[in-house]
Amino acid sequence: MSQRLLVTRPEHDDTTTYLSHYAKLVIKYAKETGVSVTDFKAGTVKKETINKFMEKQKPRLLFFNGHGGEDCIEGEKGEIIIKENENDELLKDKITYARSCFVAVSLGKKCSTFGKGTCFIGYEFPFQFWFDETRTTNPIKDKIAALYLEPSNELVKYLIKGDFTKTAFDKSRELMIKNMNEILKENEPGALERFKALWMNCEGQKIYGDKETSF
């Protein structure tokens, strides 16, 4: 097993573009701490490429960005890169964080059968966020989206630092709750709707498998 972080960053719509830009911040942090990173950028997040890499290099920490379903994680434009009962054993002995919709419902749960050292963190509901359409050329500057994507980024950073998986999960959840409280203090139109989306992410974030493993 290599102490390597694998990141997937497809960019084919607003959602994946935002996730990709925010994931770049995690990549920067990882490199600054001396962690080896393999960054599958837009255009490269293909099943064959990812699977071959995972089989050969066995990265310990996986950070998937993109769409998904209850039993799968997607890459470029809907191409399924990990599917339950097809190639899910690639997640064995790995720590996986999937910033994708619904993946925790089935694929995530399956990881809890892979024994010690395997952990999956993901979402049972759609991972959602509000964003400012006037900021789409520079998502990092979007303060609306940051409320959702920064706690999510921090989860990976805690894992990179060496926190146990449950600790990283809990700390990320605390950040979401802190941001929910911040939204409640606002006297802005639509604050309740923005609160609701963050609450859904908080409630939907689940952890399966080894909660006391680390990177």
């Binding site: 719509d13 607003d14 959602t15 935002y18 769409h67 998904g68 379903g69 997607e74 994708s100 919709c101 619904f102 759609p126 991972f127 959602q128 966020f129 509000w130 964003f131 400012d132 359409e133 006037t134 609306i144 139109p189 639509g190 309740l192 709707e193 989306a197």
Partner: peptide, 21 residues
């Protein structure tokens, strides 16, 4: 009623469903 209060330049991303004003 609640959605009507959102600023018009805000969009909601709901994963694979897309993003919507």
């Amino acid at each position: 009623m609640k959605i009507a209060t959102m600023p018009k330049h805000y969009k909601l991303s709901i994963g694979g469903e897309g993003s919507f004003n």
